[in-house]
Design a protein around this nucleic acid. Sequence first.
RNA 1: GCGGACGUGGCGGAAUGGUAGACGCUGGAGACUUAAAAUCUUCUGCCCCACUGGGCGUGCGGGUUCGAGUCCCGCCGUCCGCACCA
Length: 779
Amino acid sequence: AMERNVHPGEWTWSNIATMRAQLKRLGFALDWSRELATCDPAYYGHEQALFLDLFEAGLVYRKESEVNWDPIDMTVLANEQVIDGCGWRSGAAIERRKLSQWFLKITDFAEDLLEGLGDLDEWPDKVRLMQENWIGKSRGLQFRFALTSPLPLAGGAGGGPVGKLDGETIPPLTPPASGRGIDSIEVFTTRADTIFGASFVAIAADHPLARAVADRDEAAAAFIAECKRGGTTAAELETAEKKGFDTGLQVVHPLDSAVRLPVYIANFVLIEYGSGAIFGVPGHDQRDYEFATRYHLPVRRVVAASRDQAGEPIGSAADPVHGVAVNSQFLDGMPTAQASVEIIRRAEAGGWGQGKVQYRLRDWGVSRQRYWGTPIPIIHCARCGPVAVPRQQLPVILPDDVAFDLPGNPLDRHPSWQKVDCPQCGAAARRETDTLDTFVDSSWYFIRFASQPGDQPFDRAEAESWLPVAQYIGGVEHAILHLLYARFWTRALNRIGRIGIAEPFKGLFTQGMVTHETYRSVDGRWLAPDEVNDAAGGTLVEAATGSAVERGRTEKMSKSKRNTIDPEPIVDRYGADAVRWFMLSDSPPERDLEWSESSIEGSARFVQRVWRLVIDVGAGAGSDPQIDRKLHRAVAAVGDAIDGLQFNKAVAQLYELVGALEKAAPSASRSIAIRTLVRLISPMAPHLAEECWAQLGGEGLVAGADWPAHDPAMLIDDQVTIAVQINGKLRDTLTAARGLDQAATEALALASDKVQRQLQGANPRKIIVVPDRLVNIVA
RNA sequence: GCGGACGUGGCGGAAUGGUAGACGCUGGAGACUUAAAAUCUUCUGCCCCACUGGGCGUGCGGGUUCGAGUCCCGCCGUCCGCACCA
């Protein structure tokens, strides 16, 4: 909006209109009566009602969470918009800031979402695997390390609530039970068997203990500040150099009170996972190894392939072996898995720890500090806290009269929109100005497509008559987030009794992305392909200025990189069917497609070839067995390919059929085949097919005609080609009648001149015969 | 860094462990034409040979098998995702 000086609503609605026109022009057979827009209050009002349903069911809560804050644009930035620690528009150094935000309790469904994957047998294995890893279930040991001396809580920083769970405020992870301060650190490990190899304890920069240390230690505070300077993405955190700060605190080893471990604040420990603290085992974890080497901490072997290798030193890298425990007192000789179980048993018996199932999955933060989104239907009252907007006041409509001339969220500056009375006590209160993540919009739209009553989000019976979605199609980039959110939303509605299905999508197909080269001007602006011209010597220049253009990587088409192609001119030039045919013909749909127009000429030619066949169909008589066979094969193969979503193979089959028909002499068979061809191309080239159908005097529309049937007997040839190999190398091919037995096939192969020449009189040692296919002679 | 995938001619790609390169694009040669376009015929993985033929070839290195693009192990490269792009 700021860049183009256009209201985002105007911009969005005009884009919708453009895209709708493009889809219609391409002839997609969609039920337009069900079209919806998620930015329409008629949609998002129902979304607000569903949000309140989840709120009332205790599946929504508020907690503090870190965001990328741009101090100049006064806005939160997406990870994608932070480049080398700076805002993409302002260039300002980005700060990590804590904001109080709304979360959905997807972690309540971690086990359900994991188990549910097992029933999704029409999903690609890779997507199920990615979701399984994302949910990240692991079993391990949770326990507390006792600090040698408790750390008093100074000031305010250490003692505040970490967050709210289950509606109640939970105390800091380490409760100052005695009132004297923090006296222990809770850790979680999946490798309890390595506990005797621990050389340090590391806590996240956001850990309450770290904050307490920072309160009395400036160096610690500086280190924490440094940790917060980098980006917030997992990739950045994990690739950053492993750094730590020695707090000077020590903890006691739970199984050997003589052993003391130092406590570090470390930049690679995540507060979101587990309890935000770990113990490090440098001998068997590469990250811990690097950390220990850097800070001169002991590296001990506590696992070995066998017991007699207990003395083997750890070399220049960690040894991630699963074997038996060594140098571990009572565990020595115990296999890794059993040793873990034994430690957990002892921890539980001794009361210092317990076995725990841990998930990597985190709750879903849905607050966005942006104007263009679904307003979160909550009112903040100084006395009552956050209160749901009463149902009869829904939808909470996003105001149109906002200005984008100043930095920050325009909702925060709106003169009246925020001001409301508390629905509970009637006192002056303030509307929530955060809007919902647009992923929420896409987490239930499929239900709304199925059922669109005006007075509620959906009619249960009507929705259930359609759902689950039989065949969902989306880019593989949605394999985790969108698909997991939609699954969660459906399960949440199911749990609160709103719908009788647990899984939204029965079948899933993940298509590849359309990619294109990217272009950058000398001053670093992204250029669209139509702003770039070819210059001499294979170089590129900017069309408007003639200055040099840097050719960038080929990547998925995106608005931010501007490497998109406008389909309109291509449709203008070649027609909708040529474009459809072209898009389907080249690449298998699950694979990425690098956009190029080079083969669209071939598609346009194909349209003409089909038309020529139809207008010259003639009135041939008599049958042509070869054409009959070709046709039945094509009918079978095209049908199979379409059922398997292998459109490129269907297209190849049709090219073959057309090629054969062009060469064939007129016959009744050929005339029938041409009529059948029109039905076969109709899914891919519907406009052409209808025109051909009318030309051939077909009844009604080809779209309404039955799909042609084929005779399975016609698929089998009575002649087969047999490959003859010597030592696996092809030496000859022979034509023979189908169904020849092994001995006869072998004799035929040995009779071949080429085989005899190769063998030079030697006796074959072994002959493998695959009937009707192949003979391999081992000489 | 972690998780997931992919890698086949000049290009897009095809191949239930059994004839690698179907089909399309590009390119070459020819026909038709005054000419061009369109159309048609034909060739087109690489190398030797330039006939009958032979050798090499599916990212790299091993392995299993009568036989590997396909299965197994180890590398390399590229792409997608990593929780605020959606």
